[in-house]
Write a protein that binds this DNA or RNA. Sequence first.
DNA 1: GTCCAGGGCCTAC
DNA 2: GTAGGCCATGGA
Length: 218
Amino acid sequence: MNTKNTLKLIYKTLLNSFGHQNWWPGETADEIIIGAILTQSVSWKNVETAIEKLKQNNLCTIEQIHNTNKKEISPLIRSTLYYNQKAKKLKNFANFLFQKYDGNLKKLFQTNTNILRKQLLSINGIGEETADSILLYAGNKCVFVIDAYTKRIFDRIGLFKPDWNYTEFQQFFMDNTVHDIELYKDYHAQIVYLGKQLCKRKPLCDKCPLNNFCKKKK
DNA sequence: GTCCAGGGCCTAC
DNA sequence: GTAGGCCATGGA
């Protein structure tokens, strides 16, 4: 089977097993962006706790973050590990949004995707995965998000080369799939759902719906 | 007590 | 250009 059909079939298999995920877990674009920064290198459960606290303190919009001192933000997001760093990152994004787009997310997402991606990457604390999560889930832009789960699972399947960098992983996906925003949202969501369920560092096991695709078995 | 989770930055070689 | 340290919580 060629790569395009394999990727299509993998998605179909996941969709049949888990159902549509309706992802990202966030109600507003603001919340999605905040979550994307907070989830860096930490499980989503810790992020939920933090977002709940931010909401309780009316700090779950970029504007409110912008108007609030870093020292007030960090204790609320303690549960997300590296909370001082992340408070700084949230402020950095808010400053960027207000300096360049008058604090207006609509204006931000009207920008050409490639240009916007470069702008996001220039913000200290926003790397490729975070930028792409923001573009796809908050901005409805057609970019595929690569994360630790994606690399781990597709390495097991044998489709990725371990020495690829982020851009190469992403290019591989986008070269071999239909460019469809909803598909990209749900494909990534399926991968994360699967990753959370059973993978961790272990090989894919018999319970895994992708077992038949898996080349690296114990 | 130990390990590790949906990263990214900075520094040193 | 790249490996390695740093950031510093909470659940299994």
